[in-house]
Amino acid sequence: MGILNAQVLLTFGTIICFASTSYTYQGTASFYKAPYVPSACNGYRDDGIFIAGASDAVWKDGAACGKVYVVYCTGATNQAPQPCTDNLVAVRIVDYCPQGCRGTINLSEDAFSVIANLSAGVIKVEYYED
């Protein structure tokens, strides 16, 4: 195999590897309490308890409706002791969290409690589209 063929193979392998990798975003998460309806995406339809509202960073004029994100806590946003659990949570975007929202993603109270202590209020998170 010549050097040119090896370079082409290496380049192709790198493209395949990156194409299958999802991008992880960083932000903050807050939570809201039930009732979880109505929502901006689905009105009064019951979407369950593992849901979230998206801030402008995620919302993209409603394009986020129905998308599923996996979210995990990476740390505190204040002086509180470490609020994180070792868990991940998958949430479906069903609502809009308007400007002034306390987090990039506003998780349902049920979803937030899976990844962090509720007393933290707002946490640092990483998240990716599932």
Rank of each mutant, 00 (worst) to 15 (best):
G2N: 15
N5I: 04
N5T: 09
A6P: 00
L9I: 08
T11F: 14
I16D: 06
C17V: 07
A19V: 09
S20N: 12
Y23R: 03
A29N: 02
Y32K: 05
Y36H: 12
C41H: 06
N42E: 06
N42V: 04
N42G: 10
R45K: 14
G48W: 10
G48H: 11
F50S: 12
I51W: 06
A52E: 09
G53V: 01
A54D: 11
K67L: 14
V70P: 00
Y72D: 01
Y72H: 15
T74N: 03
T74D: 03
T74Q: 06
T74L: 06
G75T: 05
A80V: 10
A80I: 10
P81C: 00
P81R: 11
P83A: 09
P83W: 02
C84G: 07
L88Y: 15
L88G: 00
V89S: 02
V89F: 03
I93M: 14
V94T: 14
C97W: 01
Q99M: 10
C101W: 06
R102F: 02
G103D: 04
I105F: 04
N106F: 00
N106R: 01
L107F: 07
S108V: 09
D110S: 13
S113C: 04
V114E: 14
S119L: 04
V122C: 09
V122K: 11
I123A: 05
I123F: 05
E126Q: 15
D130I: 01
